[in-house]
């Protein structure tokens, strides 16, 4: 919050989190393009910060976090839906097989 200082000053405050690592993980593990949007915003965080546009870097950081989280939870949601579906199919097949055996 007190990160704003004059441009050109050496490392004013702490650069906002760029979510790059999280974005990479989402890209590789969640099979969804949201991670790539995260990487684009991560890039924006770094370049805005380097250019001294600290407010813009802060905004890009929030966007990067948002898209990374969307990717994570959509991936998680798909996984949970899949497991539920798989479980129901399993039960259905199992009971079907049981009926067949009777």
């Amino acid at each position: 919050m007190d990160q704003l200082s004059q441009p050109g000053a050496p490392t004013p405050g702490v650069q906002p989190k760029n979510w790059l690592v999280e974005s990479i993980l989402v890209t590789i593990f969640c099979c969804l393009p949201f991670g790539i949007v995260g990487i684009i915003y991560a890039s924006k965080v770094n370049s805005e910060w380097a250019a001294g546009r600290f407010a813009e870097a802060e905004t890009a950081s929030k966007e990067a976090g948002k898209w990374t989280k969307i990717g994570f939870f959509v991936g998680l949601g798909v996984l949970v839906l899949y497991l539920i579906f798989y479980f129901i199919m399993g039960v259905a097949l199992f009971s079907g097989a049981a009926r067949f055996n009777n």
């Binding site: 650069q15 790059l20 690592v21 790539i36 990487i39 910060w49 380097a50």
Partner: peptide, 23 residues
């Protein structure tokens, strides 16, 4: 308390490179 010289993740070129590699 800070990244010191361990700031590769925060270098402007690094995420750009990651993006190009992934795409």
């Amino acid at each position: 308390g800070n990244y010191g010289r361990w700031d590769l993740i925060y270098k402007p070129w690094f995420p750009k490179t990651v993006l190009v590699v992934v795409l």
